[in-house]
Write a protein that binds this DNA or RNA. Structure first.
Lengths: 138, 138
DNA sequence: TTATCTGCAAATGGTTTGCAGCCGA
DNA sequence: TCGGCTGCAAACCATTTGCAGATAA
């Protein structure tokens, strides 16, 4: 779609096959509220018969992040995941059993964070809140 | 001090020179509310003329963590820091200008986290909240 | 003595980079 | 055409592991 090509152009990036493909994958994953790792993207591309290198996947994802197209999250264990930047902010809840990642956003917490930083003489540039959970006991 | 040796024994660990030294370093750092990386600990040991390997530092810190003696935090950028487990839980605020790490604990946020997880059918095993901040504008 | 520990070096795993050739504008 | 892009392989960096020798109990 022209929409994607335009997004790339706006970011000052040439419209190339790897970039378009990766952008499509990220948008498709968005439907399943799925967070993709670089490895995930790489494997999907290979499965689709595309011939891209893992290095390119990282380069493209990093460029997308710089362009503000995607957001990168660093979870425990040196693993990073990427998702489309949908404008809204939200935090994450990772299920230690299934590995599933759920999103949530709580105004109360957001508000307190700013109050706390303010009280200590700072302002928040960014923040990361991840809850590591397991299914409630029966 | 005998206190430290006892802590090690309680953890089921032999009282060896590297372990005692590392424990002392961590406790000393506690005074400055300083969070040490494995590399920090390693360098301090070398400066003190001790002959320990970086691998041992990692092994000892990991053992301490398993024993509940220290807590490990994973900040952005694949860096981990360690600090003595003082019983109380707290979150972190990292100043992007100075790199300084401040601690805080907010009951309101803690409470909401549990409520949120509960509402979604989970219980919290662990969580990580880090605020990346900068000094307030004049 | 002997099970545990340690230093060293080599292995790992995720991510980045150098480089020669490729390709979109 | 030509500078940006790509694949490949090698480099990186924090952390882990295998192993033979060292050491606390």
């Amino acid at each position: 779609m022209a929409t994607q090509n335009q997004e790339l152009r706006n970011a000052g990036l040439k419209v190339t096959l790897p970039r378009v493909k990766i952008l499509q994958l990220l948008e498709a994953a968005e439907q399943d509220s799925h967070h993709l790792s670089a490895e995930d993207v790489y494997k999907s591309l290979l499965d689709s018969g595309e011939d891209v290198g893992l290095a390119t996947v990282y380069r493209v994802l990093t460029q997308f992040e710089s362009a503000g197209l995607v957001v990168r999250h660093n979870f425990e264990g040196g693993h990073s995941v990427f998702e489309m930047a949908k404008g809204d902010h939200h935090d994450h809840m990772v299920c230690l059993d299934s590995g599933q990642v759920l999103e949530f956003c709580d105004p109360t917490i957001e508000k307190r964070q700013h109050e706390i930083a303010d009280e200590m003489g700072y302002e928040i540039v960014d923040h990361s809140l991840v809850l590591y959970v397991k299914p409630k006991e029966k």
